[in-house]
Design a protein around this nucleic acid. Structure first.
Lengths: 232, 232
DNA sequence: GTCTATATGTTGATAGAC
DNA sequence: GTCTATCAACATATAGAC
């Protein structure tokens, strides 16, 4: 049995729906880039996960690098749009008055916790922006986050009119750091979770999305409000 | 001149000092793993940077993975020792009383900013711990940071006796996130630095090591002190 | 649009001379 | 202890059949 088939029979080259293939490639890329990083993920492993071939990926995206780009663009764009929607809504309602600091932070953070598609994977991908090869993502960062950062810094500037933009920017970066760390999944292997009795308690409610978001907002708001450290 | 030498002459196989070679390999690994990550750095590029050969690296460390391990161990060990020294000194002087929160944070953070050898490279490497392949570094993380985290959480627990360890651990992770973000060099391409006039002002004093440390301590102390967010 | 087959380069690791 | 030479395995990307 199983003789070498005549060349003509090979296999029906079924032209699957192009968009579906693209989506499946993006899904696989998102998952694997998140888990293993860009360099740590081979196009072969990625396309196998997606149920296609290397050449299909290159047909659709041209190169591995462009695939990363597309992967990030698919999530970050909509996510930042939601952030700006929330900020816009707040500003409309406030009519010129400075916004409550907690509300600004929530507008920035909640979209990360909220959308189902975001939840499972894109957080990780967003985190990758801060650890993958800079020459790959640093222009993307500017491109993708330039407007959103400017808008939120403006809002913060109205809350703290006495601070310079540099001072605000530094605190903003501290905040982004906490956020990225959380999104990267570092809460799971936190040092205090070694002790098993604590593990149960913590896993229960405190580490739920809603709770982490609340705690993070409270933490960052207090940090941002802290008076500038005096130059000694 | 320069005829093809007889085989016997080839080149004097100069047995350089073994320790020096090892050090140079560690230096190169530190620099390149920091810049491009583990998977992004080839053993060839690394050994060329170190002025040796791939086989020398494998002779000394056995594998690329072990080289990463050694690279991290060289810096993180002494760094955490300095942290504990500082914490010990504080606790000796306090004689049982709770420590000032800012002092605890400084004991934890200052060693990152202080040692000359740390300054240029190891920060980056430490940051890598939070983005390189988890199966590679997550046990190392426990190994290297278990004790230090426990000790500092204990100290924080005495400052906030009313909080559970899980609550403290969560805030501690937020703090670690800010720290890692700063150490990863993300202050340099912060969003507000686009505007050129600000660039100069910021680069001047605010982004100096001493200033960033001060600001970070103030920020985190306030964040840690913030009352726990109420469960809605 | 998708495949198989292949071109071309690079990887980590090793063998063996010196 | 260090080198050169070489290995098999893997990488990304492309050509061409269907």
């Amino acid at each position: 049995m199983a003789p070498s088939q005549p060349a003509a029979v090979r296999r029906a080259t079924r032209p699957r729906d192009a968009n579906e293939t693209k989506e499946r490639l993006l899904d696989a890329a998102e998952r694997l880039f998140a888990e293993r990083g860009f360099e740590g993920t081979s196009l072969r492993a990625l396309t196998q996960e997606a149920g296609t071939s290397v050449s299909a990926a290159n047909y659709h995206f041209g190169s591995k690098e462009e695939l990363l780009r597309a992967t990030l663009l698919r999530r970050v764009g909509p996510m930042n749009a939601r952030r700006l929607e929330r900020l816009d809504a707040l500003e409309r309602r406030a009519a010129g008055a400075p916004l409550p600091l907690e509300a600004i932070l929530e507008a920035y953070l909640r979209p990360l916790f909220e959308e189902q598609e975001m939840r499972s994977h894109a957080r990780f991908v967003a985190a990758r922006l801060y650890s993958d090869p800079p020459e790959l993502v640093s222009t993307l960062k500017q491109e993708l986050f330039g407007e959103v950062s400017r808008r939120f810094l403006d809002a913060l500037g109205r809350v703290f009119p006495e601070r310079t933009r540099a001072e605000l920017g530094l605190r903003f970066q501290f905040s982004v750091g906490s956020m990225v760390h959380v999104m990267s999944g570092n809460l799971q292997d936190a040092p205090h979770l070694e002790e098993p009795e604590v593990q149960r308690e913590a896993a229960g409610e405190l580490l739920s999305d809603a709770s982490v978001l609340r705690e993070l907002v409270a933490f960052l708001a207090a940090g941002l409000r802290a008076p500038l450290a005096a130059t000694p």
